[in-house]
């Protein structure tokens, strides 16, 4: 199965998630929507598996490929959080974000590219990317939560910040793992564990932004809107790291250029 059949999978997943929205509109808090929600994630998961099989390499190299993983993990986290705490707004936002990424992939199918350059042929490749995508999905969840807290005046700040804490700590843990895996891999591939390549620099920047949030939370137990601002801007920095680095003047000679 290659990218040309992605449209079908994408539309089916979107359709399933939209059914979840309708169920929620008719009967809020109903757990039936978990079935359609999970089914949507599984459809994307199946596409990833068949694409992997077809490409004969992990589909983790190009941005379109990472968007697939992202939609998969994000929708999964949306389902888990709904299952655990019945936040239907969170379900809707995370699924909407997953839909957005799928629509981007439908509109911009990437140049079909089967080759995997030697630098990426390593046992570190899969753990590094998967751990990062999980981290990005959790941190996107914290972004959704921060928007809800910042723009919806009726929100109870205390409970929203505590909800954010739940996803940030897990997301930050995975983000740190991804960073460290990357460093160990870089030593094998490029001879040094940290070279301040632009992508590394921006990975460090986004890591530090969440580090500030965590230290701020551990110091000031009292919740405040400022803490949600940190989460909001931290995710913007993370997006620069993910999509924006290639447009910066500092990235002309980046060793991560294959990812674009």
């Amino acid at each position: 199965m290659n990218w040309s059949s992605f449209e079908i999978f994408g539309y089916v997943a979107i359709f399933l998630w939209l059914i979840g929205f309708i169920i929620n509109a008719i009967k809020p808090g109903n757990k039936v929507l978990l079935f359609s929600g999970l089914a949507g994630s599984i459809v994307i998961g199946v596409f990833i598996a068949t694409l992997w099989n077809y490409l004969e390499r992990p589909p983790m190299r190009t941005l379109a490929e990472t968007r697939l993983w992202y939609a998969f993990f994000l929708s999964l986290i949306g389902n888990i959080i709904y299952f655990k705490w019945k936040y239907s707004w969170f379900y809707i936002f995370s699924q909407l974000l997953a839909i957005l990424f799928i629509v981007i992939n439908i509109l911009n199918p990437e140049t079909y590219n089967k080759s995997l350059m030697p630098a990426l042929q390593s046992i570190w490749f899969i753990p590094h990317v998967v751990v990062y995508m999980i981290a990005y999905a959790f941190l996107a969840s914290s972004f959704i939560i921060s928007i809800k807290g910042l723009f919806n005046k009726k929100t109870d700040i205390q409970s929203i910040v505590r909800l954010a804490d739940n996803v940030v700590y897990i997301g930050f843990g995975f983000l740190t793992m991804g960073l460290l895996f990357g460093a160990l891999w870089a030593k094998k591939a490029w001879g040094h564990y940290w070279t301040w390549d632009p992508k590394e620099t921006w990975a460090f920047i986004s890591w530090v932004a969440y580090l500030i949030y965590i230290h701020n939370r551990s110091l000031y137990k009292k919740t405040s809107k400022n803490q949600l601002f940190i989460l909001f801007f931290a995710f913007i920095l993370l997006l620069v790291c993910w999509f924006g680095v290639q447009y910066l003047p500092s990235a002309v000679n980046s060793v991560h250029n294959y990812a674009y």
Binding site: R162, L163, Y169, I170, T176
Partner: peptide
């Protein structure tokens, strides 16, 4: 340890 013990365990509110 952070992933497993982070805020999940000692957070009764949510």
């Amino acid at each position: 340890l952070l992933i497993f013990t982070g805020r999940i365990n000692n957070n009764e509110l949510v």
